[in-house]
């Protein structure tokens, strides 16, 4: 009996170990390959050059245009997902009846189950033509359309996690607010949301890090031209799109051009790692305790 117990424990430890090992493997692989790249391109140039043209005659290795493309599409996505997600969460938690909530919540989560390639074509063939009617002169590939659809994609993430945070706010706080004569809206906006703010912030940070790493939607709908711009109406290229573009082309293995995808990959990794840690730190530091 004891032996069986130990076997089960070992199996459990192994399952946990696999995820850690995988992460470790990815970091090592990224670091080793990126080291090849940074031996030839100084880190300073990589971070400050404003052009990214590693596959062309006049080679530049500035990651900024790709980072700006990534941040631009992510910014649009958050601009869509944060207000919508928060309103949905407040509505479901403070206003909706239990029956309605039980219907709407699973439906909302269906959004997270749509394959991202479908979202990509939805952006390109439905959202872009629609936006072009509103904004004449907008390019066919652009950050606005891709970002908005990405916002819809991460909406369930923001609304679910925010809703959990709102639910966790103790009933006594609401009751105190009502007792002081506050309306439902005042209670929701001035008492419940501030009390749940750390949880909401974490949901947004997780959503950002999901959007930063999203590939298919931006590869299909945002364009493939590395452009350092804050204009959401023109084609841009994100870090993920660049990695897809190079790995599906026929750049020879082991060349500097090939190593660029690892440099781009490690940039992406650092970006999401920082975001996740900020989220974790935020939760630890600003968590409101109600006991």
């Amino acid at each position: 009996m004891k032996q069986r117990e130990r076997l089960i424990e070992a199996l459990l430890a192994l399952s946990a170990g696999i995820s850690v090992l995988t992460t470790g493997g990815i970091i090592v692989m990224l670091a080793v390959e990126a080291a090849h790249f940074f031996r030839q391109v100084p880190l300073g140039t990589f971070l400050t050059d404003t052009q990214w043209t590693p596959l062309f005659a006049d080679k530049h290795f500035g990651i900024l245009p790709l980072v700006s493309g990534t941040l631009l599409t992510t910014g649009v996505a958050i601009a869509v997902a944060l207000p919508l997600g928060l309103i949905i969460a407040i509505y479901l938690n403070e206003y909706a009846t239990v029956g309605f909530r039980n219907v709407i919540k699973p439906l909302l989560e269906v959004l997270a189950a749509v394959p991202t390639v479908v979202y990509g074509f939805f952006a390109l063939t439905v959202v872009t033509p629609f936006l072009q009617r509103l904004i004449p002169g907008m390019a066919g590939f652009n950050a606005l359309s891709a970002g908005s659809v990405m916002g819809i994609m991460i909406l369930p993430l923001v609304s679910s996690l925010s809703e959990d945070a709102l639910t966790a706010v103790p009933r006594s706080l609401r009751e105190a607010s009502y007792a002081l004569g506050a309306t439902r809206l005042q209670t929701a906006m001035r008492v419940v949301v501030p009390a749940a703010s750390s949880g909401i912030t974490v949901s947004v940070i997780l959503a950002i890090s999901r959007a930063v790493g999203e590939t298919m939607i931006v590869a299909i709908a945002a364009g493939q031209e590395p452009r350092l711009t804050a204009n959401p109406l023109v084609p841009v290229e994100t870090i993920t799109t660049y990695i897809v573009q190079v790995s599906s082309g026929d750049v020879a293995y082991g060349t500097l051009e090939y190593d660029t995808i690892f440099a781009a990959g490690i940039t992406l990794f650092v970006l999401t790692l920082v975001l996740n840690n900020v989220g974790y730190w935020f939760r630890q530091k600003f968590r409101e305790q109600y006991e």
Binding site: Q51, W52, T53, P54, L55, F56, A57, D58, K59, H60, L124, T128, P129, Q132, A139, G140, F141, G223, Q224, E225, P226, R227, P235, Q245, G249
Partner: peptide, 19 residues
């Protein structure tokens, strides 16, 4: 030059120019 939408997939180019 390198600052253009470069794709081996001609459909991407048709899509880009036509919109």
């Amino acid at each position: 030059r390198g600052d253009y939408t470069a794709s081996e997939d001609d459909n991407v180019l048709v899509q880009g120019v036509s919109t």
